[in-house]
Amino acid sequence: MKRPLRFMLRLVLAALFVAPILLALAASFRDNSDMYRYAGSLSLWTFLPAEPGIDAYRRAFTLPLLQTQLFNTVLLGFVMATGTTVSSLLAGYALSRFRFRGRQALFLLMLFTLFIPVDVILPPLFFVVRDLGLIDSFWGLALPFIFSPIGVYLIRQAIEEVPRELDHAASLDGAGLWEVLRTAILPNIRGALIACWLMHFVFVWEWYLWPLTAMRSDDGQLAQVAIASLIDPLRSTDYALVFAAAILTILPAFVVFAILQRFLTSSQATTGGK
């Protein structure tokens, strides 16, 4: 292929994926009348604000709970990512390095639970969490998803890659099980750990139905769910505000993604996918 053609192809590909976000970003700088005026026919102003202003962001910052809710999303992201990574690391270590009856079966059982998507199983999940007394609580949101089959799979496979000679050498030097994990295994699976962490961190931004059902107090709600309330069914929707709030909501995920994305796109640990 010729160079310019290759360049154009990549440009089109990239544009296809970021255009909606850029459009939302542009819409957050224009008010409704600006938006409607140019919606009927195609011009530059269909996409860009004719009278740009940052007032929507000011309004978003005065939303009484948006900052709390955004904090909830970020905190949940950290807790989920860290919890999943730690529990997967421990389980992956045991499944890879210990030998006990039913090890393969347990691993397969864990993998099998990958095939229980939350959308399909929402009602009973609500009951389980209700019976545990965790409805309307932070832990009620987090706990059901701290076990992740993908996480266990990813980390177990990464540990399998680590030569067994390494941990046996450490073991012969008198290192305990935890010591082996720390000195022989951990330094060699950093890429997988970061991929696992990142994957589960951004996973929280996917949530909509689960917090909608399991969290019914607005100061414990997640930002992306609360934004739905900004679409006013009775009066008129302030689109600039909706998009300003949306942009603010995805900003933390985007920052973390920007910092860590090279581990996802180029590390050995990406086969786990979502």
């Binding site: 909608l212 107090s217 607005d218 769910v225 739905a228 309330s229 006013d232 069914p233 009775l234």
Partner: peptide, 13 residues
């Protein structure tokens, strides 16, 4: 004190 839910979810709430 208020517990606020999206308009469409009032009945479920």
């Amino acid at each position: 004190k208020f517990r606020k839910v999206p308009f469409g979810d009032l009945d479920r709430a």
